[in-house]
Design a protein around this nucleic acid. Structure first.
Length: 592
RNA sequence: GGGGGCGUAGCUCAGUUUGGUUAGAGCACUCGACUGUCACUCGAGAGGUCGCGGGUUCGAGCCCCGUCGCUCCCGCCA
């Protein structure tokens, strides 16, 4: 147990217990709240460990000390001397960790007087938090709240566990540059001008991807880093412009080696956060996930799986489905137990969600009182009813479209239905590993290929051999770790053959070898110099912390976060710089 | 880039529906009373550019237009 005693104090205030009764203590901390009853003054003293009640009574404290205690303002920093005493049974406070005792204070010294706080640190029961804008503006006060302190302490423990787990397994914590090379693909880069190289710019890293692969070519074999990453894209509640990844790479591995390590790491982090996790996570292929859930990171806490009803519709004289089937599309849908009771309006709301996701509409039929009912019921033959096979009280919703359309639409509808029916238990944790992502995605209009994961991912060797001229059919050796429909992290086995890597660049539209060398030469050179097979994974550390802290915003697990316009309200960044500063960097700001 | 929500005292919010005298409450703050409270209690007081700008009107916190900030979502982003 750490001893927090220093020259100025003997104990942490929040750590005092009945076992300290009789001890003379000197404490330092913040005035959380005080109660002045006239002849006796109570002060709740706060530090990182919690609260303790100080009492200033005439029987043990001087009139000066009592007056000083009565006068000190909340959030002031004080140093206090006194004795730990057991409280009378009637005055114990079971809501405080220190509630069995109090400190009979004999002296108080104000070390850091505080102006009246702009936002309250101590809140009454049921009192709401101040507006987030004010919490960010006055972050020096907001971070004093025990809830945020507990979150940052948890973040610390998760970081330490990450380091312990990986270091114990031979992973070396290696650092990579913050000033790096701009990368035109992927997210927008944050650029940093170079003073000594006029007109040239560094970029802040979107991830240390290439550097960690170079570590592998150098033989460092197992690497990890708690890496700060930067992406200049629009923000969300779960997206900050700078964020932290647990970045991992290893050599002489295949997918299973990485996934076994990832399962172990995630499990130990969840246990650190006070929650259990299974030793192994179920696997699901990307194709299976898309077919059954319409989504590459399905929430498998509930069913409502998508099924293919094309065969049931094929014989029907029903224009919409006939047209879809004639185009080669499918009729896919989900069945919702209890959904037959939903009103027309409620189902219309589902349809508008589906339309928002790109579908033309939802075909609906339900079974109530033993009969099929709804707009398309009259087209259903007895054979079709038998094929669809609804149970009493079920509602079925279909999308007649290409999978590219029906997947996102049915995913959205499925999630909303689960929310309505309360199917996703907040206490349940269903980890999942999704494998066999496609290597490329094809732009529906131009037909151009883009990397689903990133250009350094190794294609599935069997697919390359089987369809050498059909790269859009290749799967990648890429995988994601998913929890309850949220992506925790993802990775891949990389291409370590420079010729294959060069071909991948060409397939992605960078066919010119000079351009390849200019943009990715430092990777290709490393691969040509003798590279081992390697692969890795990266986890979103902020999101993991958010989940384990029970927070709903990344801003609550980052000490000094940015707003949705990428501003820091506390320190006030970004900010204009004087013309001299710009001139030195050879930069001119354009108006408008 | 687009759409929604919010903006009234230091903080949390009423008041805006249907424009009308001097804009209210709780907490915090200041002063006073109180010897066992723990959201102490009680009394008194101070505290307002109703985000900002413009417009309509005899009159605007309230209606209209614009704008700024925060936030949620789409696009974007692995």
């Amino acid at each position: 147990m750490t001893d927090f005693a220093t020259s100025l104090r003997t104990h942490l205030a929040g750590s005092l217990r009945a076992s300290h009764v009789g001890t003379s203590v000197r404490l330092g901390g913040w005035v959380h709240r005080s109660r002045n009853l006239g002849g006796i003054v109570f002060v709740d003293l706060r530090d990182r460990d919690g609260l303790v009640q100080l009492s200033f009574g005439t029987d043990w404290a001087s009139a000066e000390a009592i007056a000083a205690a009565a006068a000190v303002g909340v959030e002031s920093v004080v140093q206090v001397e006194g004795t730990v005493v057991l409280r009378d049974a009637a005055t114990r406070n079971s809501e405080m960790g220190t509630g069995e005792i109090e400190v009979r204070a004999t002296a108080i010294r104000v070390l850091g007087p505080a102006v009246t706080p702009a936002i309250p640190v101590a809140r009454g029961k049921g009192e709401k938090l101040p507006a987030e804008e004010l919490r960010l503006r006055h972050r020096y006060l907001d971070l004093r709240r025990p809830e945020l302190q507990a979150t940052l302490v948890l973040r610390h423990h998760l970081l330490q566990e990450t380091r312990r787990y990986l270091a114990e397994r031979g992973y070396l914590e290696l650092e990579t540059p913050i000033l790096t090379k701009p990368t035109p693909e992927g997210a927008r880069d944050y650029l940093v001008p170079s003073r000594v190289n006029p007109g040239e710019f560094y970029a802040l890293p979107q991830s240390p991807q290439i550097y960690k692969q170079l570590f592998m070519t150098c033989g460092f074999d197992r690497y990890f880093q708690v890496a700060r990453c930067f992406r200049d894209e629009d923000l969300r509640a779960d997206r900050q412009p700078e964020f932290t990844q647990i970045d991992i790479e290893a050599s002489f591995v295949d997918q299973e080696d990485i996934l076994a390590m990832a399962e172990g790491l995630i499990g130990s982090l969840w246990r650190t956060g006070g929650q259990d996790a299974p030793a192994q996570f179920p696997r699901m292929t990307y194709a299976d996930a898309m077919e059954r859930y319409g989504c590459d990171r399905p929430d498998v806490r509930y069913g409502l799986e998508i099924a293919d009803y094309s065969d049931a519709f094929r014989p029907l004289e029903f224009g919409i489905t006939q047209a879809a089937l004639a185009r080669g599309d499918r009729i896919r849908g989900i069945r919702i137990p209890g959904g037959a009771a939903w009103s027309r309006k409620q189902v219309d709301e589902l349809e508008s969600l589906a339309k928002g996701a790109g579908a033309g509409g939802l075909l609906r039929v339900r079974k109530a009182d033993g009969k099929y009912d709804g707009p398309i019921a009259k087209f259903l033959t007895p054979e079709a009813e038998q094929a669809i096979a609804l149970e009493e009280g079920e509602l079925a919703l279909f999308v007649a479209a290409a999978d590219r359309i029906s997947n996102p639409a049915l995913d959205r509808v499925r999630q909303e239905c689960a929310a309505r029916l309360g199917l996703a238990s907040p206490d349940e944790r269903r980890f999942l590993i999704v494998t066999d992502f496609p290597m490329f995605e094809q732009d529906p209009t131009t037909g151009a290929l883009g990397a689903v994961h990133h250009p350094f991912t190794s294609p599935n060797a069997a697919d390359m051999a089987a369809f050498p001229d059909e790269p859009h059919r290749w799967r990648a050796t890429a995988y994601d770790v998913v929890l309850n429909g949220l992506e925790l992290g993802g990775g891949s086995i990389r291409t370590h053959d420079p010729a294959v890597q060069s071909r991948m660049f060409a397939l992605l539209g960078i066919g010119d070898t000079d351009e390849q060398e200019r943009r990715f030469g430092f990777l290709l050179e490393g691969l040509r110099a003798g590279a081992p097979p390697h692969g890795g994974i990266a986890f979103g550390f902020d999101r993991i912390t958010m989940l384990l802290a029970g927070a709903t915003s990344l801003r609550d697990v980052i000490a000094f976060p940015k707003t949705t316009t990428a501003r820091s309200l506390f320190e006030g960044a970004p900010t204009p710089v004087p013309p001299e500063g710009l001139a030195e960097l050879h930069i001119r700001v354009q108006e408008g």
